[in-house]
Every structure is written in structure tokens, then in C-alpha cells.
Lab assay of single mutants.
Amino acid sequence: MLEGKVKWFNSEKGFGFIEVEGQDDVFVHFSAIQGEGFKTLEEGQAVSFEIVEGNRGPQAANVTKEA
């Protein structure tokens, strides 16, 4: 699992990017966010995740919000 911070997330469109120190930003789709209820992320929020190869390159999977 990697750790990063949410760079930005558009809850209307359901996607955004996660910043990872020393690496390129990683695309995140709302469907990759773990948990119940409305799936969104806040700018600057700490998250842990895995990287998988998507249709358009690397993207986040199994995203969990850090306490």
C-alpha cells in the first residue's frame, strides 16, 4: 500500500488525483474508494491505496481514508 494526499477531487464528476511524494500524481475514480455511503475525498486528505494499470495508465485502487 502507498500513502498520499488528495490533490483535488471533483465529487460531481467522481474523480480526482492523489499526490505521492517522489512520484507522478495518481488518478482516482470514486468507485475505488472503500467504505459505505457517498464516496468522495477532500483536498489534502491523507489516503492509502494501491496502484493498478487502468485503460489510460496507472490509477488508484482500494483507496482508504486515513484517520
Rank of each mutant, 00 (worst) to 15 (best):
M1P: 10
M1I: 08
M1K: 15
L2H: 13
L2N: 12
L2Y: 10
E3G: 12
E3N: 10
G4L: 01
G4M: 01
K5W: 05
K5C: 04
K5P: 02
K5L: 05
K5M: 05
V6D: 00
V6E: 00
K7T: 04
K7N: 04
K7W: 03
W8Y: 09
F9W: 11
F9P: 00
F9T: 02
F9R: 01
N10M: 10
N10F: 14
N10R: 09
N10E: 07
S11C: 05
S11K: 13
S11V: 08
E12I: 14
E12M: 14
E12V: 09
K13C: 06
G14N: 03
F15R: 02
F15P: 00
G16Y: 01
G16I: 01
F17N: 02
I18P: 00
I18G: 00
E19L: 14
E19T: 14
E19G: 06
V20C: 05
E21L: 11
E21P: 08
G22S: 08
G22D: 09
G22Y: 05
Q23F: 13
Q23E: 12
Q23C: 06
Q23R: 12
D24M: 14
D24I: 12
D25E: 06
V26K: 03
F27Y: 05
F27E: 02
V28M: 05
H29T: 04
H29E: 03
H29G: 03
F30E: 05
F30C: 04
A32D: 11
A32T: 07
G35N: 12
E36Y: 11
E36W: 09
E36M: 12
E36P: 10
E36V: 15
G37R: 06
G37L: 08
G37P: 11
F38P: 07
F38L: 13
F38I: 14
K39P: 09
K39N: 07
K39F: 05
T40W: 06
L41R: 01
L41E: 01
L41M: 08
E42Q: 14
E43G: 08
E43H: 11
E43D: 15
G44Y: 07
G44A: 08
Q45L: 12
A46T: 14
A46G: 11
V47E: 00
V47Q: 00
V47T: 03
S48G: 11
F49T: 02
E50V: 14
E50N: 14
E50P: 01
I51W: 09
V52H: 12
V52T: 15
E53L: 08
E53T: 09
E53M: 11
E53P: 15
G54D: 13
G54V: 07
N55Q: 13
N55T: 11
R56Q: 13
G57M: 05
G57I: 04
G57F: 07
P58H: 15
P58S: 12
P58V: 09
P58M: 08
Q59G: 05
Q59S: 07
A61S: 07
N62F: 04
V63Y: 00
T64I: 05
T64D: 07
K65T: 12
K65A: 12
K65H: 11
K65D: 06
K65S: 10
E66F: 12
A67K: 15
